[in-house]
Write a protein that binds this DNA or RNA. Structure first.
Lengths: 348, 348
DNA sequence: TTGTAGGCGTTATCAG
DNA sequence: CTGATAACGCCTACAA
């Protein structure tokens, strides 16, 4: 008795099925049956139960429920960096589809730290999440494990991943960017690429270089800088690029955050964009629409990415048993104001 | 037996303490003791247990753990809109302090929908979250309930909230903005205020008007527009304001997102900022540093907000029993390029 | 149609 | 120092 009081006196003490049963004068089983509609209960009894639930403000304890069912209604999602505005868009997509199917989203921000990512991953499993969505961090150590809940990779694929994934057409996007630049007359181009151990970054770069190749443009290696997908990375890479001779007439940044950093670098170098240096970017988020100048870039459908991934995951949660599916979403060129047409080429 | 197999064959089946005990040739209790260090176990046995845990890749089931302890290591956080870049900053602050204390963050995006907010709130309680952090949505219906886990209000206070809260000095911030504008010579000013049912918005407005009053400036009511804290709200309000006669020489936007909308409106009206229309804003996020022009604004310490709120919450989780604390964080004027000095006043 | 009882994986009490 | 054993709240097979 004293033990029971000790526990129930804690802050989280809540109404249980037991109390509902007692108040409605029915058995525990009956309460469960009306809650889960797992048996047809006599109308009168049912009403009594419903009333009791209402009166006492009962909400089922998801822990015991999950323990019993060996699964919760939680969808776990791991993202590398919540302050990168691309990811919240993806999250919104996931959230909409999950909430609609009465799943809840447990969002974990790995902070690009593999250890943190792994910790969150294990926790998600420990909470018996129904499924996991992951946008892998830079040096992710997550690997397929035995007895995993369904999982789908979003935006980036886990190394050696065989399951479902949803990504964007990074190579195509890079190609689009390269084509636009060469069509606008640029031949002296600097590239700010993402971390080379990220497939994403490699694909964008490859696509971009392919377009350049088709236009007969070749770049010596110092014109290809590698950096983190953030502002600081964009800034320092752009600085290096702008000091090269001959100076590039255009820069390709592999992400919007990088592009913003590059823009700062261009300003800091007392150069004008796009008059003296053009800039094209990848992401085409709202924010790069309001910079000075608005940045031309390759649009990635972030919301769709999340929504689609959520759908694939729910399929698996519902027991779909199929080989892994890869869905690749199209990218799109958004022409804004940061790329100028080169009419006369001084060195020609 | 068949039942047991049925359940353990499910996708989420995992290693349990039972298996550890068997493999290490000790009892269940001993395993628990070495895991929780709740009794000193003989070195040799302990090693066997540790090895078994390692070998089998055991992770405790948080559901049963939480069920038993009547509390999990989850911190729930409800935010109104994940795509508003102010909130992710707050989340980062929370996350850092929570993770450091080995709590996990369950982030819920209410989407400014009171129903969704309430649903998440109940779910968080159902999962026996150790504590809840909430940035209330616009028309929040959350009210104090019996047997709630510790909760602290962040950024905005819940109606009638008596517990802990962390907010920023909105009135002071508004005052700072008003003072800056009048000191720069502006007397014809337009205001884009937030929803009037939000204390936040009211405070900013009141502070701003106070500064105006001290400078002997009074505004007729059509110069005060009310809108949602987003881009669209900023745009349409600014449009209305810019069509007023006499046209305001300066605009005060109650949030960065609004300011960005206002900037678009200024451009769409073929006006130049800051030459013809100055703009001052509230938030001073990174993004408004890169717009054209960079927007002068009142800085809110988002990360600190989250970090501090997290600390208050953990205090409560640890059983601190004290009357509610209100912590108010200071704001700060960040001068950038969107406010011009008015030297000669035509109508003087 | 309703009620009873056992067990999900832990922790904690208490006796050896 | 170690090991049974009883809960925690819920679901469900099975009995009534």
């Amino acid at each position: 008795m004293s033990r029971k009081r000790d526990i129930s006196a804690e802050a989280g003490a809540r109404v249980t099925m037991h109390q509902i049963a007692k108040r409605a004068n029915v058995s525990l089983g009956t309460v469960s049956h009306v809650i889960n509609e797992t048996a047809t209960v006599r109308k009168e009894l049912k009403q009594r139960v419903v009333d009791a639930i209402e009166d006492l403000g009962y909400h089922p304890n998801q822990l015991s429920r999950g323990l019993r069912l060996n699964k919760t209604s939680l969808i776990g999602m791991i993202i590398p960096d919540i302050t990168n505005p691309f990811f919240p868009a993806v999250v919104r997509g996931v959230e909409d589809i999950a909430y609609k199917n009465s799943y809840r989203l447990m969002l974990c921000n790995a902070d690009n730290d593999p250890a943190k990512e792994a910790a969150y991953f294990n926790d998600l499993r420990s909470f018996l999440a129904a499924g996991i969505l992951i946008i892998p961090s830079l040096n992710s150590t997550i690997a397929w494990k035995h007895a995993m809940p369904p999982m789908v990779c979003v935006d980036r694929r886990l190394k050696g991943w065989k399951g479902d994934s949803v990504t964007v057409a990074n190579a195509d996007g890079g190609y689009l960017a390269g084509k636009h630049l060469t069509e606008m007359g640029h031949r002296q181009i600097g590239i700010i690429s993402g971390p080379s151990n990220l497939a994403n970054a490699g694909d964008r770069l490859a696509g971009f270089l392919k377009a350049l190749g088709e236009a007969g443009v070749s770049l010596s290696s110092e014109y290809v800088q590698e950096a983190q997908f953030d502002r600081a990375g964009g800034y320092s890479s752009a600085m290096r690029l702008l000091n090269l001779l001959p100076r590039p007439t255009a820069l390709f940044a592999a992400s919007d955050l990088m592009a913003i950093g590059a823009l700062s670098a261009i300003r800091a170098s007392k150069l004008r964009c796009p008059d003296e240096v053009s800039l094209i970017s990848f992401d085409a988020l709202d924010i790069t629409e309001l910079t000075d100048p608005a940045v031309t870039g390759i649009f990635q459908p972030g919301y769709q990415l999340g929504y689609t991934a959520g759908k694939l995951l729910l399929d698996r949660v519902d027991g779909l048993d199929l080989p892994g599916r890869d869905i690749v979403l199209k990218t799109e060129l958004k022409v804004r104001d940061s790329v100028s047409r080169l009419l006369v080429m001084a060195d020609k």
